[in-house]
Amino acid sequence: MMSETIYSQIGGRDAVEQVVDDFYDRVLADDQLADFFEGMDMAELRAHQVQFISAVAGGPVDYGGADMREAHDHLDISGSEFDLVGEYLEQALVDAGVDDENVSAIMSEVAALKPPIIGN
């Protein structure tokens, strides 16, 4: 029997969309981060984030987002800002009832993006 993916364990697309909505609510409520999203197409960003989380969770999705460095280069994101965004994603996953092991697996994929996103 195939082992169940994290994606299906956490509830599939509906659950991922709920996590992403919660995540962006948290991020946009933070004055330190909200400016990064000024003038951005939030519907497109949400769709990319749903794709990304689905892909790292083993869902039936190929992540088609721009190269991470290229997509974030102009934003000049600091390490502490990256970490803060990560904390909000982790909180959204936990609040959605994702178990610790799956949260860790998703967050390790996110952590791997820190060097290209902060430009190191």
Rank of each mutant, 00 (worst) to 15 (best):
M1R: 15
M2R: 14
S3I: 13
T5S: 15
I6D: 01
I6R: 01
Y7A: 05
I10C: 04
G11L: 09
G12M: 04
R13N: 13
R13C: 09
D14R: 13
D14N: 10
D14T: 13
A15F: 03
E17H: 10
Q18K: 14
Q18S: 15
Q18C: 10
Q18G: 15
V19E: 00
V20E: 00
V20W: 01
D21L: 12
F23N: 00
D25Y: 11
R26I: 04
V27K: 03
L28A: 07
A29Y: 05
A29W: 02
D30Q: 05
D30V: 06
D35I: 08
F36C: 07
F36W: 04
F37R: 00
F37M: 05
D41T: 08
D41P: 04
D41H: 07
M42P: 05
A43Y: 07
E44M: 10
E44R: 10
L45H: 05
R46T: 10
R46Y: 06
A47H: 11
A47G: 13
H48R: 14
Q49I: 04
Q49Y: 02
V50G: 04
Q51I: 04
F52R: 00
S54T: 11
A55F: 15
V56T: 03
A57G: 15
V61Q: 15
V61Y: 08
D62E: 14
D62P: 04
Y63R: 11
A66E: 14
A66D: 13
D67N: 15
M68S: 13
M68G: 02
R69C: 08
R69I: 09
E70A: 15
E70N: 11
A71M: 12
A71I: 06
A71H: 10
L75T: 02
D76L: 12
D76K: 12
I77D: 01
I77V: 15
G79I: 12
G79N: 13
G79C: 05
S80W: 10
E81W: 02
D83H: 13
V85H: 00
G86T: 03
Y88E: 01
L89K: 01
E90M: 09
E90G: 05
E90C: 09
A92K: 00
L93V: 03
D95Y: 04
G97L: 07
G97V: 05
G97R: 06
V98I: 08
D100N: 10
D100H: 09
E101T: 12
V103D: 03
I106N: 00
I106F: 02
S108W: 10
E109S: 15
V110W: 08
A112G: 12
P115T: 07
P116H: 04
P116C: 07
I118S: 03
G119L: 09
G119E: 11
G119M: 08
